[in-house]
């Protein structure tokens, strides 16, 4: 109940992730490109977390501060608080996931919510039930929160508009992965004391990365500078935001970066002709032990996982003292507890 949120007054059923109405440009988009012309954040309490593009800096700070409090619970001998007792969280995963799904499940259980895991395989989805009907069924069964991962960009927005539950996007196509970006912001803030003025290099396949896209929005919103570094075939050249720029020479930017975040390079990218070969990719863009030495002292290495050791990151780099990859995973639980708490406990 910060002043900023409180002053927003009663819910106005109008736009965007506040209530799932009118996220007009965010129709299901198999290309997963950023929908153009998103409406400005509307007043009213937030109901959904679909991407970070409609989060204000104040709202992001609120999530990170709440995660601080949640981290204290994780340090207790009994990691449980009754904050969401009697609320039901449904994990709805239409796409494979280890850390995100387990992380949301652990987070919900730490707050004493009831957790139901739903995966498309083995469900009525195989009989052809639509996304909207499935979501409505889950709500009729008592879901207060739907955490959804889907291969189609915009699927969480569709659910948000059509089902009476809070919706958290756990990754949709190539579009967004806000909880991952929030845990990245949290980890950076925790290690470096803040976000404003930092220079974060996101390296590699930015074009196909929902993690990168949400991070770009979150980081620039918090006043960090984002350098997107990779071969031209893997950069989203149509994306232009204040505070971000493109680079192609990793060695030139390494000494300037406070954070270096290599992204997973999928083997299909080489087969599809976007990069010549994994070996050549590693030579130009792999974060190797050699390159680690040229980084700023105290600069962080992050990776959203899962990793391809020896391609975009060397195993020695991933386990070096500068790597915060394990913290990212454990902070993910605190961030997801914060998101669930902020979205799931309110009156509907």
């Amino acid at each position: 109940m910060t002043a900023a949120i409180k002053s927003q007054g009663p819910a106005v059923k109008a736009h965007s992730a506040r209530n799932g109405q009118g996220h007009a440009a965010a129709e299901v988009d198999p290309d997963g490109l950023q929908p153009a012309g998103l409406p400005a954040p509307a007043p009213g309490p937030r109901r959904h977390c679909l991407d970070l593009d409609d989060y204000s800096a104040e709202e992001i700070r609120q999530v990170l501060d709440t995660a601080d409090a949640m981290k204290e619970i994780l340090a207790r001998p009994v990691k449980k608080a009754p904050g969401l007792r009697g609320r039901m969280v449904v994990n709805c995963f239409y796409e494979a996931s280890t850390r995100t799904r387990v992380s949301f499940e652990v987070a919900a259980k730490n707050l004493s919510a009831d957790v139901v895991n739903f995966s498309a395989g083995g469900s009525s989805v195989e009989k052809g039930e639509s996304l909207i009907d499935t979501a409505r069924t889950l709500v009729a069964l008592g879901a207060n929160v739907i955490v959804i991962r889907h291969s189609m960009a915009g699927a969480p927005h569709v659910v948000a508009r059509n089902a009476g539950a809070a919706v958290i996007n756990a990754g949709d196509g190539r579009h967004a992965h806000p909880s991952q970006a929030l845990l990245d912001l949290y980890t950076i803030r925790e290690r470096l004391g803040g976000l404003a003025g930092l220079r974060v290099a996101i390296v590699g396949d930015v074009l196909h990365s929902r993690v990168a896209r949400s991070n770009i929005h979150g980081l620039t919103r918090m006043g960090a500078e984002v350098i997107l570094c990779g071969p031209a075939t893997l950069l989203p050249v149509n994306l232009q935001l204040a505070g971000m720029r493109f680079e192609h020479d990793l060695d030139a930017i390494l000494p300037q970066a406070d954070v270096v975040m290599p992204l997973r390079i999928q083997k299909e990218r080489a087969e599809g002709g976007l990069i010549p070969s994994l070996r050549e990719y590693r030579q130009r863009y792999g974060v190797t032990t050699e390159r680690l030495r040229r980084m700023r002292p105290g600069a962080l290495i992050m990776h959203p996982g899962p990793m391809n050791p020896g391609v975009e990151i060397d195993p020695e780099v991933a386990t070096s003292p500068q790597s915060v990859i394990e913290s990212q995973v454990s902070n993910g639980v605190a961030i997801r507890m914060a998101l669930l708490y902020l979205l799931a406990g309110v009156a509907v």
Binding site: A69, M70, R87, L111, N144, G345
Partner: peptide
């Protein structure tokens, strides 16, 4: 001690109160 997560009005509020630190 912050008691926010232990309150008995879960689901009755329009906006969640901020959780403070406990030490």
């Amino acid at each position: 001690l912050d008691i926010t997560l232990y309150r008995d009005d879960i689901g009755l509020r329009a906006v969640q109160p901020m959780v403070g630190s406990t030490a």
